[in-house]
Amino acid sequence: MDRETAARRTTWPLDAWYVAASADEVGTKPLGRQITGFRMVFFRSESGDVVALEDFCPHRGAPLSLGFVRGETLVCGYHGLALDCRGRPDTMPGQQVGKFPSARHFPVIERYGFIWVWPGDPAEASADKLHPLPWAESPDWAYGGGLFHIACDYRLMIDNLMDLTHETYVHASSIGQKEIDEAPVTTEATAQEVVTSRHMDNVSAPPFWRMALRGANLPEDAPVDRWQRCRFSLPSHVMIEVGVALAGEGGYHADPAKKASSIVVDFITPETETSHWYFWGMARQFSVEDSALTDQIREGQAKIFSEDLEMLEQQQRNLSQYPDRRLLKLNIDAGGVRSRLMIDRAIAREQAAAE
């Protein structure tokens, strides 16, 4: 890791792949986005490759995201300095650019429908370190999702997703029910992930899951066994296995014909110390050809996550105003606490390598 990167040490790992954008967000028009404290610009060259550079023109510091793509170069919209796909100066009207400094180049990968960026040491970036998403490459799954910009520390979102007790209160009209409070939570941690689990047997399905049961051609008013299995992995991904099965049919392990199950996809990408990009969605294995159901689920998720957004931003305001207040740690917080510990250890390893 270079000294500049080490000097910007904050509250997130840098030697990791983060989701920077959905693939359809990045075209020939430059996209400016701040990721892990770095202002970046993303664009597609004429050949179709996605490029990520620091959003800072070496000439006068203008944002390169205000420029335009010309062939295999990004042209600054201020004075016309053109940079190639590695950030090296290529041409500029009336100037010899051979000795101009380069703009920083960030490793990128386009896969699974997303653009991934590596903000840390480029020498450590490799495709085999990318988080595997087998559902994203299988015709047996359908996916729909969206993006929110949320004004809170990204770790508050991880806390939120690793403890779903709040559903009873924040999402009372969609996925919340009193049985969530009553069901015990288990937490397990390995070197690769933290998993919290909750199972609720013989309960009524809440409104969102009634809609999912209808989509799976199952009776929406039948009693169900419900589950939530939240999986955190570095640097800041949470995959939540959720679903309902007709009661007595095996719950989580029920035959696919007897359940509506899916994976809630959560990529939480830090922007600043008090803001992040939240890429959310749902991957499902039932009625995968039903695009109208995909849209309906997306709309339902958007409403649910909008409720989280309001709570988390207000929580951040309180924490910023009272930074010295100590918070309680209860048994339901174990998943978030263990996830934060995994993040802290990753940061410590990077700091040790830098030193």
Rank of each mutant, 00 (worst) to 15 (best):
S47V: 11
V203F: 05
V50K: 06
T73A: 06
V194Y: 02
S320R: 15
E307A: 06
E310P: 00
H199G: 05
Q192I: 05
G32A: 03
D90G: 10
F106R: 14
K258T: 13
F114G: 07
D344P: 07
V238K: 01
V238P: 01
K303S: 12
K303A: 13
A23F: 12
D324S: 12
W135K: 00
D2P: 12
F232S: 03
L31I: 01
S262R: 07
K99I: 08
Y112E: 12
F286E: 11
S339Q: 00
T190V: 07
D324T: 12
V337I: 10
R326C: 09
S102W: 05
D2Y: 10
V19N: 05
H166W: 13
Y322M: 09
F114H: 14
S339K: 02
F114M: 13
S306D: 11
G281M: 06
L327P: 04
P235R: 06
L66Y: 15
E271T: 11
D2C: 05
I332L: 06
T28Q: 15
L309Q: 14
P207Y: 03
A346H: 10
C230W: 09
H199E: 10
L309S: 03
Y112G: 09
A103W: 00
V108G: 04
I297A: 01
L66R: 15
S138G: 02
F279Y: 12
Q285M: 14
I304D: 01
E307Y: 06
V97C: 02
I158Q: 02
W135T: 08
Y169V: 15
T190A: 06
M200H: 02
K303T: 11
H171L: 09
E25G: 00
V265A: 02
P63R: 01
R3N: 13
G113S: 02
G61S: 05
C76K: 03
N202A: 14
I263F: 06
P219M: 12
D121L: 04
R70F: 10
L246N: 05
D225E: 00
R70D: 12
R198K: 13
V19F: 04
R345C: 12
W12I: 09
D221C: 07
V117F: 07
